[in-house]
Design a binder for these strands. Structure first.
Lengths: 195, 195, 195, 195
DNA sequence: TATGAATGAGGGTTCATTCAT
DNA sequence: CATGAATGAACCCTCATTCAT
């Protein structure tokens, strides 16, 4: 939805703005982030920022999209290789996927959480996530009924989010051990269901 | 930390303010909630609100505390009866506890989420939650080593939060089925660990 | 103008309130001082404070009056003994009088300064100060014409204020030496004029 | 410290804001002055005011600086011509300098007074004033020891301030005569010390 | 008379967004 | 396209003062 840049310089600007936006959203959260700080960190003027992202929401959407593209692509890759993987390994890949993505993109947590001014988007996002996870699981267990697949994907997504949340909270003592417990839970569960 | 009311009228005011605060935080989220609306909804003047809750943060803390008191008490009750419950039933009780609390107190979600202006508090909150869950589990399985208990409690808390999150999101098709899957996951897991 | 207390307890209250008011005005200045803090420091309720000092201005006036009483009395004492003092000694007494009073009553500076919500009072205060200083000088030099006396008293008051201001500013290096210079200036001058 | 304007329009705005700020501070004093009135009087929006002066303190600092620049420049000019002036004339110039500056900039009195939210600045200001006065005196009497010079400058500054205070208070009868007395005091004193 | 709750106008400040240059 | 000045509604919070108990 933001205006597409036509020249090389414009594309660099957009990249810098998205990166600055990601950093500011990650540091301050959506509400506390200011367009002025984003522009300043990107080395651009406030007018320039609004040229490419006419509202704060669209900037957030742009930042979010970048991250989602990465996650979606990883899930698609995994779906392509799911047929050749043992269920346990598949479970482990899924389990760590969101946690790794959040660690790589700290703005993810600040924007995806079910609050903020993006409630309409988040429903779609979760839907797409479930769709992709279902595709991954279906590649491994093509026989499953759609309803069962749906429930499985939804539960799996919750486990992935739990893993990401726990992974991100360094203040928890014994975090690694707890993660291992959750991971085992998902592994056993998927192994049983996908067989 | 807020000034304690000393008269009957003050106590009623504080109760009304907390209720209004809970409603507004739940509807709008912490940042978008305004003190003016809270006061108006409580039928109080803005000055009255600030007399008892000198900052927005302290109001949020007050609202949060009310809910935490309820959750903590439920966990303590459960710990008292845990010895007499089968592991599976204990797991189900824990699984639904946070979801029920969130449904009863819609402001919970808006405030507890690991962000906002209460980051210092949340670490303590989670710690207390883990401590209480550990106490529940220990009542059922006194033989467990502290480290194992810690990991178990942490993993259980994540499952409880996942259940609450999923339970609250009415937009997910097949939510009930997915919840059942997660519940089974926790039940089987705890049954195995607590035996 | 404040309501006079009728009983022993009331008189103690008023004294405590005046002392607290002096402290708060001295620490924060007139505008930044709050009635709430004054009451709290006096161990009284806000309602009690307003019982005796119906407005902030009247409280300030009360505080001011206490200090003025002290200064006025000192000047009257000095007038009584001026006939028996050498001019140089009289000059020195005058020179240090305001500085000593300010040091003893730190609220003086915060309230007397020609600004704030007491502009009407200050004109009167200065007039009274000039009158008393003139009386002191006249006791030593009864022959002086009223106009000369007036100018002398006004100039002397300015010197006394300069001394008080300099005495209060600990950040000035060589303050003592400068004070001695000013003192000598006034001494020589009065010695010449009063002979 | 305030954001520097980079366009012609911005420079005009800043000038208008400083002028309006000076007027409002002069009329009402620092505390009672409101940013809203300053903006209105400058024909600017409140947002425009805050663009260039992000806090009320910085606006006051800006207003103060403008006046200080004028005073400092006059003292520097006087230092340049001090060698060619008789001591008595030099004393008279100094005596009237601050009074004239205050009369020209009525906000001076409201802001320089040793109170308010600029206590850190005032120490530096007074220091600079003493430094410049010392430079003036040294130009006339290069032989003086630094300590003597320091004390002389400090005492002179106090006399200048006393003159300014008295000059500004129209309510004092015989003000002119008293000013003449003070002026004579400084003149005789400096004539004796600088010879 | 003492207390503490109530009031609400007003203050400083922020920030998304627009627009002239 | 870039820039930076302009805008103003809205926000959190303060505090002198009043009043019911």
């Amino acid at each position: 939805m933001p205006k597409r840049p036509q020249r090389q310089r414009g594309r660099e600007r957009v990249a810098a703005l998205l990166q600055a936006g990601a950093a500011v959203f990650a540091e301050r959260g959506y509400d506390a982030a200011t367009m002025t700080e984003v522009a300043a960190r990107a080395g651009a003027s406030i007018g320039s920022l609004y040229q490419f992202f006419p509202t704060k929401e669209l900037l957030a959407a742009g930042v979010l999209q970048e991250y989602l593209d990465g996650v979606y692509r990883q899930l698609e890759d995994l779906a392509g290789r799911a047929g050749a993987l043992p269920a346990a390994q598949l479970a482990d890949r899924l389990f760590g996927l969101l946690a790794a993505a959040r660690a790589a993109y700290p703005a993810f947590a600040a924007l995806v959480e079910g609050f903020g001014p993006l409630p309409a988007m988040t429903a779609d996002i979760r839907k797409e996530m479930r769709r992709l996870i279902a595709a991954v699981l279906q590649a491994r267990a093509p026989h499953l009924a759609p309803e069962a697949l749906q429930a499985l994907a939804t539960a799996t997504l919750q486990m992935m989010k739990a893993a990401a949340a726990l992974d991100a909270d360094a203040s928890v003592p014994g975090r690694k051990a707890a993660l291992a417990e959750l991971q085992a839970m998902l592994r056993d569960y998927l192994a049983a269901q996908l067989s």
